[in-house]
Structure formats: C-alpha cells, structure tokens
Design a protein around this nucleic acid. Sequence first.
DNA 1: TCTACAGGCGCG
DNA 2: AAAGCGCGCCTGTAGA
Length: 581
Amino acid sequence: MTAVDPVRWRVVGRDAGAVVVVDLAVDLVEQRRARLSEADWVAEASTTPTAVRWVWSDTTRWYAALLADGVEIARAHDLRLCHAIVRASTLVPASASEALRAEARWDAAPTDTSAAAPSPRGPALFDLDDGEALPVGVPDGIDDVLAEFLRQQAAVAASNDPGRLRLLLAAESAGALLAAELHAAGVPWSIEVHEGILEAALGPRPPAGTAPARVQEFAAVVRSALGDEAASLDSQPKLLRSLHRAGVLARSTSRWELAEYDHPVIAPLLAYKKLTRLQSANGWAWLDEWAGDGRFRPVYVPGGVVTGRWASSGGGALQLPRQLRPAVRADPGWTLVVADVAQLEPRVLAAMSGDLALAEAARGRDLYDGIVASGAISTRADAKIAMLGAMYGATTGESGRLVPALRRAYPRAMGLVDAAARTGEGGGAVTTWLGRSSAPGDAQWREVQDRAGGPDASDADRAHARRSAGDRGRFTRNFIVQGTAAEWALAWLADLRASLAALPPVSDDARAEASGPVFSQRAHLCFFLHDEIIVHTPKEQAEAVAEAVRQSAARAATLLFGGFPIDFPLDLRIGPDAAKS
DNA sequence: TCTACAGGCGCG
DNA sequence: AAAGCGCGCCTGTAGA
C-alpha cells in the first residue's frame, strides 16, 4: 500500500451514532481509530493543526454544523465532489477508475441539510426529468468513506497526471468549505439602502397583493396607449394579442424585440416590465426572506455546473442585479475589498493553448485593447464580440464574421477551441486544464447521429442530427475555457482563504462591531461570482487584504500555468459599498 | 389542484 | 441589439 503523506489525512465517518475518525498518520498500515461523541468531535476538529486534511463524505453534510459550533476547517477532501471529477476525467485510464465507477452510491446529490427533520432518512429519491432518480446523500459510514478515499487515491495515482488532478481535487474541496462559510457569513446588506432603491423606483411599499404605485401608473399609460383599458400586461400571449391589435406586430414580447418598434406603447411598456421585474425578483418580499437580518445568505452549490462553476440554489446569488449592488455595505468600522478579473476566460485560453501572441496582447492591459493594438481587429468593441464568438461558437451575425480574423491572428488559441468543438460534434469528451472532463454524447444523442447516417434517413433526421452535433460542439468548445477559468478562480479563492485566515488578529474594536460566526470576526470572503469576490474586512486591514487578493491571483496563475507569461489583472476597489463607481 | 414547461430576464 | 456558452427564479399557461 502506498504512503498517503505528505499530507496528514483524517477520515471522518459515522458509525452507530458516533463520529469515527481514522487518522492515516504516515502509512495506511498505521491507521488509528477514535470514536468520538459529537462534542468531542467538535473539540477535535477545532484544535486540529491547519496542515491536516479532513476527508469526509460531503462537506455540506458535516461543515454547517461545525461552523455553527464555531469550528473552522482549514483543509478538506470532499469525497462526493472528488468522486464526480475522478470518475469522468479522461486523465484517468478506464481501468484505473473502474472500481470507483462501480460505486453508484457516490453519484448522489448533496446531502440535504436544510430539511427540518433529521436523520432517519430512508432512500430519499430526487426525481430527474427523464424518470430516473438520483438518491440524495452519499454514504457517510466510516468504512464506506475510507474505502472510497482509497479508491480515489488509487485512481489518481494511476492517472496520466496525478499532480494536476490533486490540485483540482484540493481546489474543489477548498471551494466546498468556502461555500459553506460564505453562506454562514453572508453578504453585509443594508436594508435601508435596499428599501431606498425600491422606493425610488417603485414607490412606497404596497400592501401585500397589490402592485406598487409606480407600476400601476405605468400600467395605466400602457393600457391607454394600447387603447384597451382591460389589457392584461402580465400574460405573454394576451399581451402579444393586445400589441397586435394596436399595430405592433412583434412575434415575442421580449425587451430587445419590442425596442425595435416605434409606437407610443413601447417606452411605458418597457418601463413597466423593468419595474415588475425588480418587484418580483428583488422586491420587499425578497428582502424580507433573504436579507432581513442584514446579511444576504445565498446557498452556493460547488461543482453545481458541469463545467465546474458553482451553481446556486435559493436567493439568486448568480443574478444579483447591479442595480442592488449599493445595498452591499460594510459594517461600522469595517470595509469591503471588491475584486474581479478582467477578461478571465480569454486569458485562460491564451495560457492553456500556449498562445504567446494572445498572451502578449493581454499582458499588462485590457486584452481587447491589446488585440486592437496587434492590428488583428480594428475596434475594442469588435475585438470583444469576436472573442466571445470564438469561445461560444458563434457562426452568424457580426460575431461570426469577425471570428476568422481572430483565427488568423491567434491560431493556437483558436485551434484549441476549434478542436474542442470538433470533439464535441463527434460525441467525444473534452477536458479542462486540470482534468475535469465533460460527459461524452449519451446514447440518445448517439442514436440521433446514427439515424441520420443511415440509408433511410430523412432530411429532417439529418437536420436534427446536424443541429444536435452543433449544439454539443458549442458546449464542448466553451467547456474547456469556462471550466479552466473556474479552476483558476477556485485556486485564487483557496489561496486567498488561507491568506486571510493567517492575517494577524484584529483589534477588539473591530471584533466588537462584527457579528456572525467566529471566522467573521476577522477579514473574510463574503461573496463569490465566477470571477469576482468581495472580502468583508476591518478597515485597519483593508490594505493588507487588498495585497493578499493580488498575491493570490498571481499565485493562482503560477499554480496552474507555471512560468507561462500570462497575467490576470484585477479591477480592485476598497470602500464601504460594493457598487462599481 | 398540482406539476411541468415556456417565456422572459437577471448574472458571469 | 443578439449572436454564441453556462446558470436560477418568477410568472402564467397547459396538461394531467
């Protein structure tokens, strides 16, 4: 059996009601087991040196309770998340992951910790749309957990690139810790500012069940312009019919299409839609439910997107409108460090393809300006449209027309995404820089392709297959870039999280102003969105935090891409609110 | 009455 | 302006 050092692993599982910890100190031969009560387990976790990595079934299943008890975990290995990566990774030969892939119980959805009723859950099933069902909750018995850990270690060791996979698994697991911490900490939220925004836009808070004053005003103007005092504005089919009667022959009621028509109803209707959107998505009801205690606590779902990006569930963390950003406000005595990466995805593409020309265009400046400076494309706006089109697979319109110029200027970078698209069109799997792989085309997809190639295929069959192949190609084209960008972001987060934890203790004044879990008594991450972070910090540490944010970005670049000359410039602001100035 | 879906729109 | 990728949430409607 192979040694599991240099990291010191502690494997956590349950057994007959108690928490069991197996310490894999140096060698698996020297396993030491300890059976702990819940209280002892909290004490054990809270006094663990930061160099120890806890191995557990599912971070969401264990960590929320520890955080509630004031315990922080520095390092973890999330078996559920890592199982998903290892089982699909093309870096792992099929023979090396066979044992792991046979363990379907580890393909379960995250443990649902929100349910009010505790444990004695039978085989809870989570219905999927195709009639299959995915069980909720992976195994958490100590023997199951230990066995799965060993399967994963073996598969990674037998992979083509254990170093990259280990980095990915560590980053993914650190992300899971952080996701729980972000939820526990919450984004500091000013109810007053939010209410001010709502009142300015919508008027005073209306009684439940009635529309705000400004919404009613615009509705009246719209109905009058339609010449129909009873027109329904909230039902798409009815609104469309009303518009047709008034001479607006739109085929949908979407904002962009309506904007093309010149009619007195358009302006008030667009205003009406904007206001009702604000009211229904982030109005007073949202404020009460999600930020009523002065903290916005979205539920993050690490690994929730196939590409490795996080998803979210509840609260709409991924859709927080810029309009509401001013409501993010630091506590008294505290401030915010807000940072986002400029053009993360094309920079990642330059690095992973080894495209020195694109890296040169990106170096030390706005990447799109750099493309213009190179002469490849004439305006910044066009360069941006072309780059997005190249990464998303645009074939038509302005974007599609501009992509060929990019292909000539940056053949390596474009060659990489074009190759990923061809792989996807053929039903194959593609893999990110660190080893996260997409699923290959499934049986149903394959069947569509096979039918189109058969002797009695109809034109419709062939068109369907062509479209379906194109859809997959655009997905895999984007997967390698979006997924690698997610890996860069995770590396940035993980490094920063550790740096913040190592900052010296803050003054008692700052601590006294803070509220929430123990780690929120000092500078801590409170928000993450793909390529953007917010750190809530005592004012006295803001500069140190900003420096840590920059250093972590630089270290993430080195960690992933070594000495390749690519930089990741940050747009970084320090201030009491998170609105972009 | 309940659930599934589509339209629409917010974010990267 | 979308286009071309990835999401979540709200609303109303259609269908069981």
